[in-house]
Design a binder for these strands. Structure first.
Lengths: 192, 192
DNA sequence: GGTTGTCAATACGCATGCGTATTGTGCGAA
DNA sequence: TTCGCACAATACGCATGCGTATTGACAACC
């Protein structure tokens, strides 16, 4: 993180710097907080220069989400490379507890699902993850319909977990407590 | 629903009318969409009269959330009256699929968890529901820590489900398909 | 039938955000 | 050295939202 801050040291900014700063803002304060003037202040310039890089605020949002989506897909591909489906699911669950930034952005995008630019991105990412889960559950022996439902249940649990922990702080992310929770989730959702 | 619209027929409005209209707006477009001037237009008056009833926009939000919280508690109390814990959990799950408006508001509030007025309300409601779930799981024979984790998992699944269905429309709320999903969730989360 | 209380309209001032237009500046290439 | 490109600052106009101040209207009550 702080990608934006470090670049801000340099005298001049590129489009990539603005995109990184946009993701920082989204992660910290959500999509509605991504506004041109506040972001410009953050990057120590005025908004006058922003419009050299992007036509509109929406263009920046689109570009930033594109970056994030690519990053999210790469992370998925890594896990998908694990052969044993049970091991793959475990790794997926465990990673959810870590990688704060990626999940911060995901959580922020969840809260902006009604936004016309955010929605198609989330639709694609969610569908990929659901397919991923469904396939894994099939490979551990569940029927098609059961695998689909279990995938939906798992994904819903993931989404709700993010919402509750990252936003509400229901539990204060005590690492060992989190680990125990993840173990419970795995033993409940992954058939033996 | 349409509580606001029907009242709008009358010549003069009360604070309760503004609160009902506020909840309508929140349900339909989320907390950020609750603004004085748009709401006034909706109610066919100008904002000049709003400030006779409420000191600030925040005061309206607070009052509206108070109403909702009371309503949510009453709904919970109804289910809590069911003796058999398994039956109680089933009823809870099944109701989630219905009652669109209550859950629309809940979903909207979820997306506004960072708002200082929304947060304490959601914290209370969430804690009550978690306690409710935990107690039910204990009564069907789970240990304290397992019951807690299962309650958290259940609640996260509920929250995620709302987010995905109401906002993303991952599945288009086909009633029979939904029923099957709920059955899967129950058989997965409620121990036999 | 006049007075009062209750709601509503109008008209402000202020802040923030978007997008545009114009001008300025520094660094690398010619 | 100078020219020009790539970024940046300044200064607009416009829209929307908050909150205030003032005046208006209508019904109930005396």
């Amino acid at each position: 993180m702080l990608q934006a801050a470090e670049k801000a040291e340099r005298s001049r900014l590129s489009a990539a710097d603005w995109e990184a700063g946009a993701l920082d803002l989204i992660a910290e304060q959500g999509v509605p907080a991504l506004a041109v003037e506040p972001l410009a202040r953050r990057l120590r310039v005025t908004k006058g220069s922003f419009y050299w890089h992007f036509a509109t605020r929406e263009a920046l949002l689109k570009a930033a989400l594109q970056n994030w989506e690519t990053h999210a897909e790469e992370a998925m591909d890594q896990i998908a490379a694990i052969d044993d489906p049970r091991e793959r699911l475990s790794e997926l669950f465990r990673r959810t507890g870590r990688e704060a930034r990626t999940h911060s952005i995901y959580s922020a995008l969840l809260r902006a699902l009604d936004h016309p630019i955010v929605q198609p991105v989330m639709e694609r990412v969610s569908q990929r993850r659901l397919d991923f889960l469904k396939q894994a559950y099939r490979q551990v022996g569940m029927s098609g319909i059961d695998a689909l439902h279990r995938a939906q249940l798992t994904y819903a649990a993931y989404v709700g977990f993010l919402q509750l922990v990252l936003q509400l702080g229901v539990k204060h992310i005590d690492p060992t407590e989190l680990e125990e929770y993840v173990e419970h989730v795995m033993s409940t959702l992954i058939p033996q």
